[in-house]
Design a protein around this nucleic acid. Structure first.
Lengths: 195, 195
DNA sequence: GTCTATACACAGATAGAC
DNA sequence: GTCTATCTGTGTATAGAC
């Protein structure tokens, strides 16, 4: 079982740097210390290795949401802010999001599923927090949670993209800061509809 | 000169679908009708072909900004809204942005330069429009344009990503709609700082 | 300029020994 | 389970004829 775990660990790391298509069996072997035999014994082909790896990453990232968006002891907006301001490796990108533009991955529904599940869950959690914020009168009642959740996720994913394009970690911080700036402004102002 | 143009046109299209690393000389030859000889006559290697192609795309995308962000006959916020609501091929992604997560491209400063120029220019135009909006009292004076510009670009780029992950064009519209929702709300409310 | 022929390394996988 | 050997196709070019 040790080699199988080594292979998965190495593949997770390689996907983070090179993505799916640019990661070859040879790279996995070199990085994990496993031979060709082990690799193809544990995983029928590259697609199966990728499926196991992506499911692994999905579980890790989903679990990491618990301490911010999942911390129901804090007020809803504070949970969103905590998630926005999480420390991130801006130049490497999101371990799942960065794979979204690979054609071979996204056109394979099995490989796409872990990405869809993770982002679907993230968006649902954000929508819930936004709805809670409305109920607690932290946010105006006329805000639509679904588009806002999509925007907040996009702030982080688009921020990663800008950081890579400019090779500047500050770009991601600017994007999330821009999102919080607007949210806070909307939150602090009383609703005119109820004078 | 005809073959050179054919090669560039074919490569632009292939980059949009497959990206840089996954596009091979053979694919370019098949798609353009050019032979090996023509390809390597006009472009020394794959990197040079990519550089010409990316510079091409950059010029096209930059030119397309003229009718929205560049239309100074409209009020600043209307220019931003027009750009946000431009029709886009959500499932294909941004022709330049989608390349930002390819390691071989982003780690080559020559290939990264067209992306950095395009997004830099876009962010500058948005910052200018936001500053104009503040000057025209369309937006509150305490807004910081740089983070907001990064957020607005991120709304589109992150929206593309969500559309691909979910294979659903509506995701991009949600993200841009979320951005406009917040901007409009901030714009419509009078500033409490000046009662 | 454009073509065909050739070259070498690597991707992605199979076979079979231990 | 893990290893080494082997195999076919492709990526990325170069050489040289037309």
């Amino acid at each position: 079982m040790s080699k199988r775990a080594d292979i998965l660990t190495a593949t997770r790391e390689l996907f983070w740097t090179h993505g799916y298509e640019a990661t070859s069996p040879r790279m996995v072997m070199d990085a994990s210390g496993a031979g060709q035999g082990s690799l193809y014994h544990h995983f029928r082909d590259k697609q199966r290795l990728a499926l196991a790896t992506l499911t692994d990453i999905e579980a890790q990232l989903s679990a990491e949401l618990g301490s911010t968006l999942g911390d129901t002891s804090r007020p809803p907006l504070a949970r969103i802010r905590a998630w926005l301001e999480l420390p991130r490796q801006a130049l490497r990108g999101c371990r799942l999001g960065r794979l979204a533009f690979e054609h071979a991955l996204i056109s394979d529904d099995e490989l796409r599923a872990p990405l869809a599940r993770y982002f679907g869950g993230l968006q649902t959690r954000l929508q819930t927090a936004l709805a809670d914020a409305k109920a607690a009168r932290e946010l105006p009642a006329d805000l639509d949670p679904a588009p806002l959740a999509a925007l907040i996720v996009s702030a982080v994913q688009g921020g990663y993209l800008l950081s890579r394009v400019h090779q500047d970690a500050a770009q991601l911080q600017q994007a999330t800061q821009g999102a919080w700036q607007l949210l806070e402004l909307v939150a602090r102002r009383p609703r005119l509809e109820h004078p």
